[in-house]
């Protein structure tokens, strides 16, 4: 089927790999691409630990980005050392708010988070379109009459500093890594993390132990949303354009990181730290695929289809790995690295 397009597979693969990891510059691109994947993925880890499936990454990224953008528009003159933490916090708050709505709906009204997060994604996109063509639009766009739905170029004080001269790698990479480490500590070294995991592992036992299930389900989705929200903020202030623009949907902004982050997290066995290499590989795949499209004029549709196949192959190969592991020939690197994730089906009530 695929060969019908006629090609040299090895050179294509080489192009992909070289573009993503073969040079410092390529690696820098890969890290930048991996930021939202890692952050959303880490958020997914937290949600899944509480036995909640968060498909709302797209909407949470958008809401985080919008709030962060609003803060940057409101306080453009603040110095960088204040403004950057402020916009990142705003991103976290926006995303957390959107996640918490889904969490509260599940915890207190028994509305499945799968339904609410999918619906809230739609709401967030329309809200973004409303703001970017209305209240938040660049005044120059109205003046010129071109009406492009975008904000003005945001304050330079909010630009995420570049880490490597002449490259794209910026502060967001460090922030994402810090958040991943932070999430690890949150989950395994704090009481909140313990409660979240306990609620996910066994809600009934947790209730007997006096742990509030609704509260912790809500906070798990809020944390998860916060991570996605930070990703949204980083996408704005680490972007080439340093502004927000909409093409009517969320993908143009997020690059589907809200969905791909789920894949990243599950491939990492729902472990925040393992999400780092997982996100880098997925990010590298995207960067490499884009480079391949440019170098060899491969249709982007093929690349999307192949990404899908890779995902399917990788999850399917878990089975063989497990059988292998059971035979006692491979040491598991991590206790959480169990591959097949069992989400407890029963509701909390």
């Amino acid at each position: 089927m695929l060969l019908s397009l006629g090609a040299n597979p090895l050179s294509g693969y080489a192009t992909m790999f070289t573009a993503a990891f073969g040079s410092l510059e390529g690696f820098s691109e890969t890290t930048v691409k991996s930021i939202p994947l890692l952050l959303v993925g880490v958020g997914i880890c937290i949600a899944f630990r509480a036995n909640v499936i968060n498909i709302g990454g797209e909407g949470q990224m958008v809401m985080g980005a919008l709030l962060a953008t609003a803060v940057a528009l409101a306080f453009p003159a603040f110095p960088s050392f204040m403004l950057i933490p402020m916009v990142l916090m705003a991103g976290a708050v926006g995303g957390a708010f959107w996640g918490a709505i889904a969490g509260a709906l599940k915890a207190y009204f028994n509305v499945s988070e799968i339904l609410s997060t999918i619906m809230l994604n739609i709401v967030a996109v329309q809200f973004m379109n409303f703001l970017l063509r209305g209240p938040m639009i660049d005044p120059a766009e109205i003046e010129r009459g071109t009406g492009i739905p975008q904000t003005m170029r945001l304050s330079e004080n909010a630009d995420l500093p570049i880490l490597l001269e002449g490259m794209r790698m910026h502060l967001g990479v460090l922030v994402a890594l810090l958040v991943a480490v932070g999430a690890y500590f949150l989950l395994w070294r704090t009481a909140i993390g313990f409660r979240i995991r306990s609620v996910g592992y066994n809600p009934d036992a947790s209730r007997y132990a006096g742990i509030s299930v609704p509260k912790n389900v809500t906070s798990a989705l809020a944390f998860s949303g916060a991570m996605a929200g930070i990703a949204g903020a980083i996408l704005v202030f680490g972007s080439e354009s340093h502004r927000m623009v909409t093409d009517g949907g969320s993908t143009g902004f997020t690059g589907s990181a809200g969905f791909n982050g789920i894949v990243v997290a599950l491939l990492a066995g729902l472990h925040p730290l393992w999400s780092v290499p997982s996100a880098l590989l997925f990010g590298g795949m995207l960067v490499g695929a884009n480079a391949l499209q440019r170098a060899a004029q491969v249709p982007s549709a093929l690349i999307i289809a192949l990404n899908g196949l890779i995902v399917v192959f990788v999850v399917s190969s878990e089975y063989f790995k497990q059988r292998y592991a059971q035979a006692g020939r491979v040491e598991e690197p991590d206790d959480n690295d169990n591959g097949v994730i069992v989400t407890e089906g029963g509701n909390n009530e």
């Binding site: 969905f259 999307i304 289809a305 995902v311 399917v312 089975y319 994730i341």
Partner: peptide
């Protein structure tokens, strides 16, 4: 193969989309 259902579903989605 006991593939995780959430992820393999997303894989199928991407495959169909592309």
């Amino acid at each position: 193969l006991h593939a995780e259902q959430g992820v393999s579903g997303i894989g199928i989605y991407l495959f169909g989309l592309g």
